[in-house]
């Protein structure tokens, strides 16, 4: 059976077109399905386009909401420059999917210039030195001193958190929020945990 929602990948984003005569409910269910399948097409920050005249305004608004919920952008008009050449640029392949529930373990110190990038959570048995980066879709646990840049919930998970024996990073990022270190850093003796509370990144001591 032919898919009622067709997706075309372009430099500017994804272009969605629908089979003539398809019901809106079906279209919506179909897109919902695709968004939730974790398909590599739907990367956060990608723009989806639906031509303005294919659907009535209220239905377009429903779709807009759905895409926004998944961290994507939504537009009804293509940027002008890119229209001439519709099928160039194959979609960038992402590394194999990792479930956000999973956790990867790094059994060494991350030094300046080294980077860990994953969709899952990360456990680091070692330090994260300045100049190193950890970017995780889930949470980050450093069994050591964390001085580098750490980004938890990098794909939008605001419930992600960061724990370290000594949490003195250059920057902490959780989902789309950034906190930078104070210019005068105090060393803390207890492990600490950073998470989003009431729209702010909050750091609090924990025991473990």
């Amino acid at each position: 059976m032919e898919d009622i929602v067709k997706i075309k990948g372009m430099k500017a984003g994804l272009i969605l077109s629908f089979t003539r005569g398809a019901k809106f409910d079906e279209i919506r269910a179909n897109i919902q399905n695709k968004l939730e399948s974790g398909n590599s097409f739907f990367i956060r920050g990608t723009t989806a386009y639906v031509s303005k005249d294919t659907l009535p305004t209220d239905q377009i608004e429903v779709l807009r909401k759905m895409f926004h919920q998944h961290g994507m952008l939504f537009r009804t008009e293509l940027p002008k420059i890119k229209v001439e050449n519709p099928k160039t640029e194959p979609i960038k392949k992402l590394p194999p999917e990792e479930d956000p529930q999973q956790m990867i373990v790094i059994n060494k110190t991350l030094r300046g210039g080294q980077e860990v990038r994953t969709k899952s959570s990360v456990l680091i048995c070692g330090n994260v030195n300045p100049g190193a980066q950890v970017i995780a879709g889930g949470s980050i646990d450093v069994r050591g001193t964390c001085r580098g840049m750490v980004h938890a919930g990098a794909f939008g998970n605001t419930k992600a958190f960061i724990v370290a024996d000594q949490l003195i990073p250059m920057q902490i990022r959780i989902a789309d929020m950034i906190a930078r270190s104070p210019d005068k850093m105090e060393k803390s003796e207890t492990p600490e945990r950073a998470s989003i509370k009431n729209g702010h990144i909050v750091i609090e001591p924990i025991t473990r």
Partner: peptide, 12 residues
């Protein structure tokens, strides 16, 4: 010291 850290990573 930062450069040394980077180099240790490269050596590893």
């Amino acid at each position: 010291v930062r450069d040394a850290d980077k180099v240790i990573g490269e050596l590893g």
